[in-house]
Simulated assay, not measured.
Amino acid sequence: MGLSEDSDLQPILFGLFLFMYLITVLGNLLIILIIRSDSQLHSPMYFFLSNISLADMCFISTTVPKMITDIQTHSRVISYVGCLTQMSLFLFFGCMEDMLLTVMAYDRFVAICQPLHYPVIMNSHFCVFLVLVSFLFSIVDSQLHNLIALHFLYFKDVEIGNFFCDPSQLLSLTCFDSFTNNIVMYFAGVIFGFLPISAILFSYYKIISSINRIPSSGGKSKAFSTCGSHLLVVCLFYGTAIGEYLGSAVSSSPRKAVVSSVMYTMVTPMLNPFIYSLRNRDIQSALWRVHRRST
């Protein structure tokens, strides 16, 4: 159904979302290139950050290019296979960011609560292993939803009240057994939603407890500064995601669901590079070093 029926608003929406998409891709790509090119950023925290930036680029690319094309061509049709593919990729990269944020919380927990063991625990092999586990969990999550979606009857002219194949709306159209559908959905929600949030909250509970035992205010400030960017991104990611699904559950207005989807799918990935670059002194220093070398 798209974003708006107003024909005069279409050029404005096209320019706005194209600008947001380019800013998101270029911002995350810049962070990846900075981390790869600066040897001082070759640490576990920035290794995970580069993977989150890659997930953000892919996440927004699953929905926004199709939406921009629809605005330009005045067509909102998507094929059956294309819709299932978009839903699968949307879930995969969204879950990937979810898992990587959990991994980064664990990384900060080890760095602050067990600093002497940090180089041994967070070695390069273990970091790659954590990313691979996040990758596999994301595949399982997307395929669990596909197992339900593939039981759809093949039918045409179905309206989806959003600008992309929203999994929550798409799965409500299923002709599969509702009891089995709910069991799979609750299982996926616990494994890929509740457990990561619980792990992040537990990590920060331990982190805050350790920081409070630091005697000097300078040491506390330094410890908090290493977690500030990550904690802000976590709040933004889960805040918009929870707000979207709670809003869609409470309100029956399709327009409100579309607005919350824009926040979750576009605004959050766009803001992440700014949060990490503006609040992180290491990234700022690396940008300055690259600028000096290039000039």
Rank of each mutant, 00 (worst) to 15 (best):
K220G: 01
V133F: 14
T240W: 05
G243F: 07
A199D: 00
V140K: 01
I31A: 02
F179M: 10
Y245A: 01
F90E: 02
T226N: 03
G82M: 13
I275P: 03
G193Y: 08
T62H: 09
K222F: 14
L84A: 06
Y106R: 07
P269C: 08
D8I: 05
I12D: 00
S294L: 14
G218Y: 12
Q114W: 10
K66A: 11
L171I: 15
C83W: 05
Y238F: 15
D177Y: 08
A257N: 07
F194M: 10
K220S: 02
V140M: 04
I275C: 03
I200M: 10
G219R: 02
S261L: 13
G27D: 05
D107K: 03
S4M: 08
S285A: 09
P254F: 11
T268E: 06
H291C: 09
V234W: 06
D56S: 15
I60G: 03
I34W: 03
D70H: 14
I139P: 01
P65C: 06
G27M: 06
G189Y: 09
L49M: 08
R255F: 14
T24E: 03
Y118H: 14
L29S: 09
H151N: 13
F224A: 08
F129C: 10
S39P: 02
G189T: 06
G94R: 05
T174E: 10
L130H: 04
T226F: 11
F19D: 01
S229M: 04
T226I: 10
F129T: 12
Y264E: 07
A188R: 13
V110P: 02
L16G: 04
L30C: 01
G2C: 07
S88C: 14
F163M: 03
L89E: 04
R293Q: 11
S75G: 04
F109E: 00
Q114C: 09
M104K: 03
S248W: 06
F90P: 00
F179P: 01
N146T: 09
F19M: 12
V190H: 06
S43W: 04
I68C: 05
I160M: 08
T73S: 13
S39W: 11
M67N: 01
N162P: 07
H125D: 05
M263P: 01
D38V: 12
K256T: 13
V140H: 01
Y186C: 09
L144W: 04
M96T: 13
P119E: 07
T180I: 14
G82W: 13
V158Q: 11
Q72M: 07
G193H: 03
A223S: 12
I207H: 04
R108Q: 10
V64Y: 06
T24C: 12
V103N: 05
M20H: 04
I32S: 00
F176Y: 15
S217L: 12
S79Y: 08
L41V: 09
G2P: 09
K156G: 02
D56W: 14
G239D: 04
H151K: 13
G247S: 07
V259I: 15
T85V: 13
Q40Y: 08
C127Y: 06
V25D: 03
L150A: 10
Y264I: 05
I242V: 12
H42L: 12
F19T: 15
